[in-house]
Design a protein around this nucleic acid. Structure first.
Lengths: 340, 340
DNA sequence: CTGAAAGCGCTTACAG
DNA sequence: CTGAAAGCGCTTACAG
């Protein structure tokens, strides 16, 4: 192994000196900006390698006022959702010369103590903000500072006109619930609603309600409980319905994770799926097709949404030409848990 | 909504001027370093809020030579693994005054073009590098530059002595396979190995082999196939065994994701689980307890490993006192898919 | 094709 | 308790 140990912090000046050029020239070769004689460039590159020189991002941003990096701000989203989203964003960024830095806010919003985000206009050319990732006030403040922003799964705070990327939660939900009603003749369809803090939940529930309404089924509030996009909450909610003898012949879970919890609770109570109670979900998580019975669900283009968000952000940064709303289609996937 | 629109880029000088103090004083109040008269501090804070001032990270790092930021470098890991890991890391960082920035390298290693990582000694006080996140050469180069590093699920390249955090893959695997042998009398136990690029796979397979050996079962190479930590590859591998009439009465999948694929393939072929073929996994993914039959597996402290990595890194940065190896215990979870 | 020099926004001895 | 000034490592007109 080559010993690459160096006196710490090689700077552009060290490179310039050793290559017998000015720092301006080194800067030009590193950035491929301005003209440099090929031989000079070669010499500089070889010194860079010798010295193991790495440009200082901060200094660079400071001097050039641009970062060529995109920021992603996330709450602590879980499971399959994150990786698909990230893959999509990276695909969207690929081909453009931007890096992607991520800041996750599992810990909740920060106090005045650290009164600025680690990702902001000073180290980022633009931000993708996922639902709940940031308070509306904070978003307003960022846009006021002229930072290009694209919202994922969250609509723009009033008056700010921030582009938003999401997918067809409402229509997807309506379709799957209508399927339950029309094809499988279910009338007592319960809904395990998603997290109250995510807009997706609202639209999915609305789709559910519209399906009922359009098929002359009276909405019964008893049939809606919080599944919170997680198995455990869903399990408890279903346990409660069962304990209270609530009559139901189908469950529409706001995501596949909560469908999982519903299935467990139903099984424990000896219910047969789908004969006694049909179960459908949303998202089409990687595990859904492997369940028994395989889960009927709505395929959500999570990766596609990530990609679209990245593309919109880059367009916003580079040309200010964006769509205020990007709404990707969803598609019902009929498997066995609905009775098909 | 308050209009916070400001002339872009408020600097410390703007704040200083408006507060009628020097930039040095503003710096002192922002950083709570050095003494400042309470009234002065109040005045400065109020100007900061008025002007919506946000310090420039790059300038700060440049001037102070410290970033109070930790970096996490990841390959494109998928599913539940990521969120648990991240939660752990954030827990580990909580209480210390560091931010966490993440760089994911789904796209694969970068060329000379961008010859430096977006996360390095210039914007980070230390790095957590997850398996495969970075080539060994690159790691060597980073340590040569004196950047504190902790490796997650990857042992230190020879001679570098970088601290490593992982969990007991080998013993966990041995235990679960022995359970299959001793309790359920299985002798033809197949193994769906994990990704060849992750060390975990190696240790899990070794545990499997040791269990066989210690119970006088001759290792049969036909019984090992690549599951690659994913359902699809596992499904194909099991299909192949079945098509070739390979005799087997149990499958030890290197993770729960591949166990999922195995189950699907077995079901499709009409095999009963666990009567005909027992299936066990590794990790204890969130969905595992919800499967039918519930999946017997090894609980891996993914979150704990993340937490430990963060703690080790902070110790390394602040005191250079670290454990070269942190090996967290794993625990078999007996459910129904093994026959229990 | 190349260099000297100002400036990006901050921090930190040093002096008072 | 506060300020003047140098310096962190880079980029970018400007001049040649």
């Amino acid at each position: 192994m080559i010993d690459t140990r160096e006196p710490s912090h090689v700077t552009i000046a060290d490179v310039a000196q050793r290559a017998k050029v000015s720092t301006a020239t080194v800067s030009r070769v590193v950035n491929k900006s301005g003209l440099v004689a090929p031989e000079t460039a070669d010499r500089v590159w070889s010194v860079i390698r010798q010295l193991n020189y790495v440009p200082h991002m901060g200094a660079r941003v400071l001097a050039s006022q641009k970062s060529r990096t995109l920021g992603l701000i996330l709450p602590g989203i879980s499971g399959y959702f994150f990786s698909e989203l990230l893959r999509g964003i990276e695909n969207g960024v690929a081909g453009y010369d931007y890096s992607l830095l991520i800041y996750s806010t599992h810990r909740g919003v920060t106090s005045e103590q650290d009164f600025y985000l680690p990702l902001n206009e000073h180290n980022t050319d633009g931000l993708i903000i996922f639902t709940e990732g940031l308070e509306k006030d904070e978003i307003a403040r960022l846009t006021a500072r002229q930072l290009p922003i694209v919202l994922l799964h969250q609509s723009s705070p009033a008056g700010l006109g921030i582009p938003c990327v999401t997918f067809e939660n409402k229509n997807g939900s309506r379709a799957i619930v209508e399927h339950l009603i029309k094809v499988h003749k279910r009338r007592r369809i319960a809904h395990l609603a998603g997290s109250e803090r995510q807009e997706d939940s609202y639209w999915r529930e609305l789709g559910y309600r519209q399906a009922l309404e359009q098929n002359d089924i009276v909405f019964d509030p008893v049939l809606v409980a919080l599944g919170d996009f997680e198995a455990e909450a869903a399990e408890e909610a279903v346990d409660k319905w069962l304990a209270e003898d609530v009559e139901l012949d189908a469950i529409f879970a706001a995501d596949d994770e909560s469908a999982l919890g519903a299935i467990t609770a139903l099984r424990r109570a000896g219910k047969r799926i789908p004969q006694d109670i049909a179960v459908v979900g949303f998202d089409d998580a990687p595990f859904s097709r492997h369940l028994t019975p395989a889960l009927t669900t709505v395929r959500a283009p999570i990766e596609g949404a990530g990609k679209a968000a990245a593309e919109q952000l880059i367009r916003l940064i580079e040309s200010s030409q964006v769509d205020l709303l990007t709404l990707l289609p969803t598609e019902p996937i009929f498997r066995q848990s609905c009775g098909c």
